[in-house]
């Protein structure tokens, strides 16, 4: 019977074009639509799979931003037991250090055996959330996980390495895991079930201490990629192109 906490966040939805704010220091948040971080969605799936297999309870914690309630009701329909939104000034975007402090503070109250979160997110500017939370709670962290088995006081995890290598590791609980992929892809829940949850389930609000941004970064300038004229198009037939390429590589010292 494990007490599992999934910590998740909403990130910019890349289906819409991103705009830079007037100061040129970040995204224009008025234009953003937020969506659950895909890796976090896998973390939720992994948490629910563990609960279904081994019993226990799943608590999902997310900062209060646009769309977070719909997302939490969806996780309730998937089988989460408790949904908590962090009450704070998150709408303008906060760095992961501040977010991790808030997650750690709230997660701690639930005495988790296991904290699951996405291994990364598209708006991570100051490192992923998982290792920071582990640091603040004094727990071990393993990232790039694609499978978890629970045993008495420990977890056996599958960690993915580049090149298709898989490592199997054991970690003492409580621990934080950065999920690369759940053992199954995130499940579909019928809208009727989500709507049912909207009527019956409750989302708790957690008060948090003042946001602590220390240790994070602040962006000086954010801009769209600028077109540069560095590319040289090589013309000619195959032989000529190959000869030209070789001379360019030689010039650059690559050959």
């Amino acid at each position: 019977m494990a007490n599992i906490v999934a910590i998740v966040k909403m990130v910019p939805d890349l289906v819409e074009e991103l705009e830079i704010n007037d100061e040129g220091t970040g995204l224009d948040r008025d234009w953003l639509r937020l969506i659950i971080n895909e890796f976090d969605n896998h973390a939720i799936e992994q948490a629910i799979l563990l609960k279904e297999r081994e019993g226990g309870e799943v608590t999902v914690i997310a900062p209060e931003t646009e769309g977070v309630e719909d997302m939490l009701f969806t996780t309730a329909a998937k089988g989460a037991d408790r949904m908590i939104k962090l009450a704070g000034d998150f709408e303008e975007g906060v760095n992961n250090h501040a977010l991790a402090h808030a997650f750690a503070e709230t997660a701690k109250n639930h005495q988790p055996d296991l904290i699951l979160t996405g291994v990364q997110a598209n708006d991570d500017l100051d490192g992923p959330v998982g290792p920071l939370v582990a640091e603040y709670l004094g727990m071990p962290y393993i990232g790039y996980i694609s499978g978890v088995t629970l045993e008495e006081g420990r977890a056996i995890v599958r960690k993915e390495y580049p090149g298709g290598l898989i490592g199997e590791m054991e970690v003492t609980l409580p621990a934080v895991l950065g999920i690369q992929a759940g053992e199954e892809p995130p499940r579909y829940v019928a809208i009727s079930k989500v709507r049912q949850m909207m009527k019956t389930a409750e989302i708790a609000e957690a008060e948090i201490s003042e946001l602590d941004f220390s240790g994070g970064i602040s962006a000086k300038r954010m801009y769209l990629p600028e077109a540069a004229e560095r590319a040289e198009m090589i013309e000619g037939d195959e032989e000529e192109i190959a000869a030209k390429l070789i001379s360019i590589f030689k010039e650059a010292g690559a050959l």
């Binding site: 289906v15 969506i35 892809p185 499940r187 579909y188 829940v189 019928a190 809208i191």
Partner: peptide
């Protein structure tokens, strides 16, 4: 669908429809 027995391709079209109001995402 209620039993969760649904092909992945269909799942994303349904998720897109819910989120973006069109199945193409």
């Amino acid at each position: 669908l209620l039993a969760g027995n649904i092909p992945a391709e269909l799942q994303s079209a349904l998720e897109f429809s819910q989120r973006y109001g069109n199945p193409l995402g």
